[in-house]
Design a protein around this nucleic acid. Sequence first.
DNA 1: TCATTATGTGGTAATATTGCCACGTAAATG
DNA 2: CATTTACGTGGCAATATTACCACATAATGA
Lengths: 121, 121
Amino acid sequence: MKKQEKLQEEKAAILKGIAHPVRLRVVEALAKREMCVCEIAELFNFDRTTISKHLSLMKGLGILDSRKDGLNVMYSLRMKCLASLLSCVEKVVLGQEVDMSALFCGCGSLSNNDREEELNA
Amino acid sequence: MKKQEKLQEEKAAILKGIAHPVRLRVVEALAKREMCVCEIAELFNFDRTTISKHLSLMKGLGILDSRKDGLNVMYSLRMKCLASLLSCVEKVVLGQEVDMSALFCGCGSLSNNDREEELNA
DNA sequence: TCATTATGTGGTAATATTGCCACGTAAATG
DNA sequence: CATTTACGTGGCAATATTACCACATAATGA
């Protein structure tokens, strides 16, 4: 049960990590290809340091990866699943769908979630 | 382009709507069945009004639906796709997966509900 | 070495979120 | 009608988030 709550918080943390217009867009951009900070920053009108902090935040959550390349720091999407997850959210928003049981964006084998049993443990 | 930004914000809003431990859990609970506020509130240790506000917030976003039933107000999951989306996030968190590009985050079969006992606090 | 370019950090003011309390309302019941 | 039960709202204090500015650091090249 305590473990269950912890899981909830971790999931919420990841979601929170992409629940922001800027971070959302960064994830979508990085889903296409690796990019350096300056390149990512050019996508927005915000201060470069603001973008830098968003990147740090996502890296801290394990959403992104980064590597040094000369003067640049290249960022890439680590949790690739999030890309399709966002496509799913987009469909929801666009279609204002209520029943997407027919559509799909997803994590194919999302069938067995037996770990919920631990809840009472 | 302006339209694109608007879309980003809408997607972020939906994600934000479920990027909270309490709301996350509510969505997962409602994915299994419709529940009244008092029932939902029992899942947590927070004040009932706090839960009520979380529910209002999600209803406002179109994530949940509600209907009056006598003294009760029954809430249900409107954006059913979110259920499987959360399963996807859970897998990410649990497995710390790095490459789920092979998997799919389908919003399809979100039916398997292993009964999640009620709280027994 | 010095200047330049690409990034990250600390500090901070403006905002937004969260949760509780005090009430107010609606439906069911006696 | 009075009570009880189930919900929602307004208000507010404690936090958390966001974005900017001022700097500090690393790599690169003249």
